[in-house]
Amino acid sequence: MKIVVCIKQVPDAKDVRLDPKTNTLAREGVASIMNPYDRHALEAGVCLKEQYGGTVTVLTMGPPQAEEVLRDAVACGADEAILVSDRAFAGADTWATTYTLAKAIEKLDGYDLVLCGKQAIDGDTAQVGPGLAQRLNIPYITYARKINECTREVIRLERMTDDGYDEVEMDLPALLTVVKEINEPRIPSLKGKMKAKKLQITTYTAADLKADPNCLGLKGSPTQVARVFSPEMRGDRSMITGTVAEQVEQLFEKLEDCLS
C-alpha cells in the first residue's frame, strides 16, 4: 500500500506568548515542531504499513527549513520525504495550499491513502484535508478516530461526530484526517534517526509541479488578511478587596444576585 502523509511545520503553541507590553508575539526561542495532529496521521500511516506492508511518503509544503519535520517523520518510520518549496508558494491560503499539494501528490508514482492531521495548530482551519481530497477527486473522511480494517480496496473506520461516532467505509484511494484519539505517536527510533540523517530529500518547486502561477501563493489565494490586531479586552477591572472574609462576603452577595 502506498501511503502519503501530509505534514506541516508549526511554531510550538505552548511557547507562543503575547508580550503584554508590546502586544506582539514573543517569539524568542519559539521552537518549530511537527504539527501535533500530523504526528498522529504519521503514526497511523506507519502502523498501517507495519500491518499491511507498503511505503509511507511524507510531504510538506513550506520554506527550506521545513526539511527538519520531514527528517523527524523519517526518524519516526516514514520511508521517503518530499519538500514542496518555492518562494511562489508564500502567502498561500488553504485554497492555494490544496492546489499546490494536489499537484505534488499527483506527481508521485500513485497512492492508495492520503493522511492528514485534523487541523494545524497555527491556523486551526481544518480545511486542507477536505480541500485536498476534492482536488484529487477522491473520497475522504474527517475526524477519523479508529481504523478498523484496511485492505487494498477499502478502508473501514470510525469518524468522530459531535455526539458520538459513525462507522463508515470507503474505497481506496481515499483521504483521512485524524484526531488525537486514533493512536499514541511513537518516539523516533535509533535506526530511523540514522536513516533520516542520510536521507536525500526530494524538493518540488513550482516549475517541477507545472503549476498555474495564478493559483499559487498569495496571488492564488481567494482570502486575504485585511488587518491583524490584538484581541480587545473589555477590562472594567472592578476588584473585590479587603480581608479574605470580606472578599468572600462580597463574592457571595454577587453570586446570590446571579443565582436568584
Partner: peptide, 8 residues
C-alpha cells in the same frame, strides 16, 4: 515496548 520500538 517503546524502548524496543526505538531499537534500543
Amino acid at each position: 515496548g517503546a524502548i524496543a520500538q526505538a531499537d534500543l
